[in-house]
């Protein structure tokens, strides 16, 4: 009875300190939402911007511009040659069309927009000149929830948040207690060390529930991010991710005696993962040579698993690879942390 009571009081302590710290509430709950809103607006899916094309002044320029105007994806303007060349160089237009004979297109073939513009311009000119397409085609525009940037972003932000919560919420908190001599004071009581560590980890899991609920609910209400997978599967992934980063937080805190040390260590662990692990953009964009490294990072595994269960409704079993990666990181981190941990 005494044992459970101590654990309960330690847990209440962690929850009270969290509740009574307005800055923490901001960073944990408000900040990721602001990020989601900001990025959601910046990368919202609207009508795609028209491709700017310049028609070079000269005989037939007006006719050519009229023909190009028939293509809905192009925005064309007539320019004198020097101005047009400069506009292409500066990227203000992606294609120059000269009404010579033969018609000349000038563009940088390494730019996808330029290639698109060339294809669209050529089709418009050929049609205006009387070409008839032998095959009838129909375009169908698709913008399904689930495939948008915001859909990609919300699970990434959740993963990032769980990482930050574990690293700061465990690592920083413990070092602060060590600096305040509070760890040493606790060691001077009959308190069981396991109760203390379990209470800290348990408090992280409770915050994980709250963070996940807030972010996913806001995502659904504000951006129509639909949750395909089961809540149980999402919570299991979140739980394992949270445990994994609590372990890493404990490991970084195991010997640090200064706030500067722990801040540096936490940033050292987190910054590479912010960039590499597919929070804001897909980790697949990095070269194949570094992919094995990136795929082995715990945040990559957490983000991949979260996206799979949230967006694709994947089962837990299908994510065994990611879950194993997180489990390995967490298990090794906890084991080393407990071996190296300095209580005073």
């Amino acid at each position: 009875m005494g044992r459970r009571r101590a654990f309960g009081h330690l847990l209440l302590w962690r929850l009270a300190e969290f509740r009574r710290e307005p800055e923490v509430i901001f960073w944990v709950f408000v900040f990721p939402l602001l990020l989601a809103i900001g990025l959601g607006i910046a990368f919202r899916d609207g009508a795609p911007a028209k491709l700017p094309v310049a028609v070079i002044e000269g005989a037939g320029a007006a006719e050519m511009a009229a023909a190009l105007a028939a293509a809905p994806e192009l925005a064309c303007e007539i320019m004198e040659p020097g101005q047009a060349a400069r506009a292409l160089r500066l990227g203000k237009v992606v294609l120059l069309a000269e009404p010579s004979d033969p018609v000349t297109y000038r563009f940088d073939p390494s730019r996808p927009e330029s290639l698109l513009a060339r294809a669209a311009a050529d089709a418009a000119l050929q049609r205006a000149a009387g070409r008839r397409d032998p095959v009838a085609v129909r375009d169908e525009a698709v913008s399904e929830p689930g495939g948008r940037y915001i859909d990609f972003l919300i699970p990434g932000l959740l993963g990032m948040n769980l990482m930050g919560g574990g690293m700061w919420g465990v690592g920083y908190v413990i070092v602060e207690m060590r600096i305040r001599m509070l760890l040493k004071r606790l060691m001077a009581t009959p308190m069981r060390r396991s109760d203390f560590l379990l209470a800290i980890v348990a408090s992280r899991l409770i915050f994980m529930l709250a963070e996940t609920a807030v972010l996913l609910c806001c995502g659904r209400e504000l951006f129509d991010v639909r949750i395909q997978g089961s809540v149980a599967a999402i919570l299991c992934v979140g739980l394992l991710g949270s445990l994994c980063f609590s372990g890493l937080g404990l490991l970084t805190a195991s010997r640090a005696r200064k706030i500067e040390t722990i801040s540096g260590l936490v940033n050292l662990v987190m910054l590479p993962m912010y960039v590499l692990s597919g929070v804001f953009f897909s980790a697949e964009r990095f070269p194949a040579a570094v992919q094995p490294f990136i795929q082995a990072l715990p945040l990559t595994a957490l983000n991949d698993a979260l996206r799979a269960v949230i967006l694709e409704g994947a089962t837990l079993a299908s994510q065994w690879h990611e879950l194993c990666i997180m489990g390995a990181w967490g298990g090794i981190a906890f084991a080393l942390a407990l071996r190296w941990f300095r209580w005073s």
């Binding site: 302590w13 009574r20 001599m181 001077a188």
Partner: peptide, 14 residues
Amino acid sequence: LGISLQETKLPDKL
């Protein structure tokens, strides 16, 4: 035993 250390900063927010 009851122990009071030279400088312990007890939890501020409790």
